[in-house]
Amino acid sequence: MTRIAEERTGTAAVTPPPRLPRRRRNWRGLLFVAPAAIYVAATVVYPLLYNITQSFFDVGMREVTQGGAAFVGLDNYADQFGRPEFWHSLRVSLVYAFGTVAVTFLLGLGLALIFRRFYRGRNILRAVVLIAWVLPTVVSANVWRWLLDGSYGLLNAVLNTLGLVEGDVFWLGRPTTAVIAVILATAWSFGPLAMILLSAGMEGISPTLYEAARIDGASPWQQFRRLTLPLLRPVSLTVILLIFIFTFKTFDTIFLMTGGGPGGATETLPVYAYNEAFAFSRFDTAAVATVVLMVVPIVLSFVYFRAIRSEERA
């Protein structure tokens, strides 16, 4: 704001009459914002801080209903960091997030390229794909469970017909395939979001660059490799960070598809924290897990906002 004002006065040949100082703060204007700010402080910031304090107390179901939790210092942290299940779920979370980011990015890029050139009906097709993204997670998770069903699922029917597998394969019942399945299901939902962002990025690339490349004899692949991809870097960074944050905090897809199973193979940190609290009534150690869970997205969002700032300045 102030920068624009400075630029204006700097370039203006005729000095405008002096106006009210731009920096004047409108305290009454705070009344407009106060309800929202207080609401967010009370329902987001306070619970988050409260959650952090919980992680230093001994909180079970009795303490939740009757109060009187005892301070235990760092015991809960020591307990969690000493538990292999905790580290396991952190590892699963990272595998899940990185895997989903990779698949989502490729899906989004592929879709964006398919819908890049104009033809009649393109906009409708591109809009229809977005249904995958707006579908409620409970719905898509259940549909994927059905598609991947070992006995009557569509995937097995197709693979059996093609002769790629023999008989029933319980994709969600084996550790490795279950992880791959939840990654693919999540990426399926996020793919169209990546597509929109990458499409917008592609539209920002000047067509003259491609003309120049064509004149220089660059093949379509070379144009893609040497022009499109490098020029999409800023948008790609946005997509990668956003999808990572979104995936890292995803709870419902996994909870509904596998419940964290089989044998904890897909138990990501959010699922682990939820189970600690609601399956085992260990609200204190659950708090520890959610504190860790929060650190990663917050650090990444700072990275994201910094990246965007410097992008905008450039």
């Binding site: 704001m1 731009r22 920096r23 004047r24 703060r25 409108n26 305290w27 204007g29 705070l30 407009f32 914002v33 929202a36 700010a37 967010v40 402080a41 329902t43 987001v44 910031v45 619970p47 988050l48 409260y50 959650n51 919980q54 909180v59 939740v64 944050i245 890292f248 905090k249 709870f251 959010p270 924290a273 939820y274 609290a277 609601f278 609200f283 659950a286 708090a287 959610t290 869970l293 929060m294 997205p297 917050i298 990444l300 969002s301 906002f305």
Partner: peptide
């Protein structure tokens, strides 16, 4: 031109990155 604008904007952005589970647990308590 309200005071604290960047702080409030940042607050609204950061809270969107918070996992629902992180809110659901303390909210339950």
């Amino acid at each position: 031109q309200i005071p604290l604008l960047p702080v409030i904007l940042m607050l609204f952005l950061i809270v969107q990155m918070v996992p629902s589970v992180n809110l659901a647990l303390p909210m339950f308590v």
